[in-house]
Design a protein around this nucleic acid. Structure first.
Lengths: 210, 210
DNA sequence: TAGATTGTTAATCGATTAACAATC
DNA sequence: TAGATTGTTAATCGATTAACAATC
């Protein structure tokens, strides 16, 4: 069962969830409405929601609370996911301070760093622990998701250690491509995004001169 | 001319660029090689590179320096892009400190914040200026790219102001969906990424119990 | 020449979307 | 009933990839 939600849909579900949270007062939302705020096609929304066996009401729309619940369930956000943040630099701190974590069912179970001066300090209520404890902490606290927020040079090594420790999903913020077999790695990279924007800037400049 | 590079290819070019930079010593790289490090199919690599009129040598591979140049040119990374960072909190600081900026031809032309206590301080050599100066600074320094690193509640307003100031591309790090007509907006969102990982974790858990 | 690898075709696959009957 | 909106089909579009002739 399950599993047949297309990747493209899975990538959009969190966006829908976010848009729906932003409509507190309202009780019902049409596919057209949701499509507009999410920036996609209305047919797309309906198609996506059909994978969740979402029950819209013809002539009315979707019950917002019901829909949010279904999306969460489809994404597997039914229990808490403990997360380890590796690296307590600027980025690691920014991530740890992001309070959206708990809002969506993720919790910072550990922050580790190699820098002895950082160990023992607290970020957003979590104590920074020694990188030496990584495997220990991951195992003991049942952590399944690792966030890499270390310099590029250290990222691959961290990825390897996370994998060896039993982590199954990695979010890599280090500006480098890492390879970790049997682990789902997602990369978030500022310069990649900037470069894509640059392409479109250039494209539109061309269009103007044409 | 140009413009006919598919979106999917454009999104991969920065990855290739990154992978190629990581192979300093070497002079030549085959599509199979590059595909492995980039985590894609070798035919995909060749197809992508064919849009750049890249000249590989049969039986040998691609000249790394030549290829990097072509990718940069295709992406429009031929001149410097001044960037404004809006928000000098944890995230804004992390972004400003990221030295990959200049490496890829982007420069931090301004950092602005509403907090008077932050104005005047320096981040990575750039002075934080008052948010009131946003439009002024964007116009005067010819800034085309804006990075939003403010709390969710302020993001839409910042987006509107950036657009009004003439910005044509926005990278939105605020955990909210914003709508800005006629502006290319890309969203980078930690919780979206985590939620996608969560889906796959759940999926694999199912697979194991089956 | 033999081995390797490109460039490109063509088949396949997956994702998007217009359209409309069903129905609240 | 009339108006609105869903759920789904089917057409279209775009992206991926195997395969292989070309050729270094």
């Amino acid at each position: 069962m399950k599993r047949q939600i297309p990747d493209a849909t899975v990538a959009r579900l969190p966006v829908y969830l976010r848009c729906l949270s932003q409509r507190a007062g309202e009780a019902v939302c049409s596919s057209t409405d949701l499509a507009r705020t999410a920036g996609v096609n209305a047919a797309q929304v309906r198609k996506d929601l059909s994978f969740l066996e979402a029950q819209g009401v013809r002539g009315v729309g979707y019950d917002i609370n019901e829909l949010r619940l279904r999306i969460r369930r489809a994404l597997g956000l039914t229990h808490d996911f403990p997360v380890v943040i590796v690296g307590a630099g600027n980025l690691g701190r920014a991530l740890a301070n992001y309070r959206g974590f708990t809002e969506w069912g993720f919790s910072i179970a550990a922050i580790v760093d190699t820098d002895a001066r950082k160990v023992g300090s607290h970020i957003s209520g979590t104590e920074v622990e020694s990188m030496d404890l990584l495997e220990d902490v991951v195992g003991r606290r049942g952590i399944e998701i690792g966030i890499i927020a270390v310099p590029a040079g250290a990222a691959q090594r961290v990825g390897d250690r996370l994998a060896a420790a039993g982590i199954r999903s990695i979010l890599n913020f280090a500006p480098t491509v890492i390879t970790v077999p049997n682990v789902e790695v997602r990369r978030v990279d500022l310069s990649t995004e900037l470069q894509i924007l640059a392409y479109h800037l250039t494209g539109r400049a061309d269009a103007k001169t044409t």
